[in-house]
Design a protein around this nucleic acid. Sequence first.
DNA 1: AATTACTGGTATGTATACATTCTGCGAAGC
DNA 2: GCTTCGCAGAATGTATACATACCAGTAATT
Lengths: 241, 241
Amino acid sequence: MPDGSLTQTQKALITLRQRILGGALSGGTRLFEVALADELQISRTPIRAALSRLAEEGLLERGKGGGFVVRSFALADVVDTIDLRGVLEGTAARYAAERGAPAAALAKAQLVLRDIDRVICQQVIDMEAYSALNTVFHGLLADMAQSPTLARELARITALPFASPSAFLEDHERLETLQRILTVAQAQHRAILDAIANRESGRAESLAREHARAARRNVEFLLSQEAALREGVSSLALLAE
Amino acid sequence: MPDGSLTQTQKALITLRQRILGGALSGGTRLFEVALADELQISRTPIRAALSRLAEEGLLERGKGGGFVVRSFALADVVDTIDLRGVLEGTAARYAAERGAPAAALAKAQLVLRDIDRVICQQVIDMEAYSALNTVFHGLLADMAQSPTLARELARITALPFASPSAFLEDHERLETLQRILTVAQAQHRAILDAIANRESGRAESLAREHARAARRNVEFLLSQEAALREGVSSLALLAE
DNA sequence: AATTACTGGTATGTATACATTCTGCGAAGC
DNA sequence: GCTTCGCAGAATGTATACATACCAGTAATT
């Protein structure tokens, strides 16, 4: 639990977020200000601020007569959220193609893809590096759409751990499987960029949607495994039973 | 300014929301807790809570070192947001078609369309009644998708006054123009419902997107008018200069 | 002259006492 | 037996005093 020069609100925010995402607080659990204040040794005011921001992030819901409840995510919600990301990224790709992406962004995206190539051809894949690069690529896609509104909503969705573009990748056991998945994803990245560069908006949209669909297949695969295997999937810790 | 048995937070929330939507606070304006507390005769704590919720609604943004700033909406943002609603409603319609909408919802939607018919064939159109029915119809569409995630995001977007399904309709001067617009919209409603009932997902999605496009055309038309005419368009009061 | 360090003012952050409201349970009344 | 009233407690809502952090303006030092 970090304690640098953070404000009390930030400390509470980090701790509580961690607990929710980590599954320590299961969906439907009501959070009481006094109890939390007592436990975390922080006064009610910053606790309240933290709860409010968690509601803003979509991890909590406001109860009827005040109060906050941990939002519960069912499998169907996870799948829907990933698909929704696909829809939004599809729209971003379409906008980028229709409006014409800035040459600088396109060039940068090409460089990122080159870097990703370098990472995935290694014998031991550095997943942290891949995730970082993948996130940058998807961020560039959002930028190329030149729509702050869309970028905002995409950021909101992506903030949920299971909807992030790099979710569920670190959880594949076999190297071959992982390498195959990443190779296909990279081909999709190239195709999306190509469609945008050629101003093929329909193609760009479809490809981006399909790209997210791969993430959905990943979840469905992981959930078809034995429960024991699912234990380690940190992105799914907050799933309801 | 209402004062029933509302909490201070609610009062502050309502007042501030009204000011932002009404354009009394232009985009980029920073809101200071103390100043607001002093002016509204409410202590800082509920002011803070209200500001936090307005940030959640998307009307305010959090500044770098704390503090809140009124979000500024340019014309491009309005257009993008309406299109985004189209994308989301398109997705809702597609889901409804793919998953199969509950018979009860379909029947209810048919009834609503019947009611809308009755409203728009009048000599003097009761716009309040139309807006209410139109909102119900769009709400049913969101329900038929059977995706809480999607419904949530749709509700978020629709909360912005210029992105609501019924925005900009009350601002048409000539009766014939209004009647033509509503007639076309109603035809689109029917087509969307038909596509959903027939499980034609692609058609349903395209139609719902096009339906939102009509709202976009409305904005663009209104903004092409003289500034004097735009004065009365309440949904656009918060637009940046 | 440029830079830095001080300082006053103003902003948000925090703690806490007090107010209010809601809820669940139990007893009284129908 | 069921409803309703009311009470107790526990929760959130509110006010406010105090702490801290940030910024700008100014003066001192290099």
